[in-house]
Amino acid sequence: MIARSSLFILVALTVAIIASTADAQKVRIFKKIAAPETPPTGTELIEEMLPPDPGVAGRAITDALENWNSGDFSGNISEDFQDKSRLLDNFANDVPLDAELRVTAMRNYRPMQQFGRVGDSGNVEITTRIQVTAETEIQFNDPQRGFRRLLGTNDFVVDVTEELVPIPN
């Protein structure tokens, strides 16, 4: 009887060990550090995130950052951005007209939070807060120092808002 119960415990432990090992061998899931961030007014937190396709979001973020070249990128800077008006003022004063920004690489795509609301059109709008590392290159001609090329690697925290447009059956 004792031998049988020992065997049962042994089998149970083996199963438990195999199960835990199998779990550890899965793809590592990113666990974000809990940071209390209340959803923006009028939106609801979507706990089970469905983030946008990294390729699509990456292109959209690239386009938004490269709007820097047009000089009118106010719409791509959130109202929550620290010292937004100061950035726009200094940009207008300091950045030469021929300065051109290119996003040369993007990595570490990391959706952090997602909010949703019913938009003015009646469709659902979801906003995904994404942290992404982007490498940028700015080229311009400095009247005193000649051709300049400035490289930078920064983490951008970006809100990507998508509208869910129903497709007729």
């Binding site: 950052l65 920004l101 709008e125 490289l151 690697t153 920064n154 998508e162 497709i167």
Partner: peptide, 23 residues
């Protein structure tokens, strides 16, 4: 089925890592 259309992209913050920060 729904088509996901990107409507708006806004930078909320920049965490500097290396080199020039264009924002």
């Amino acid at each position: 089925r729904f088509k996901r259309v990107v409507k708006k992209v806004q930078v909320k913050d920049v965490i500097k890592r290396a080199g020039n920060n264009p924002l």
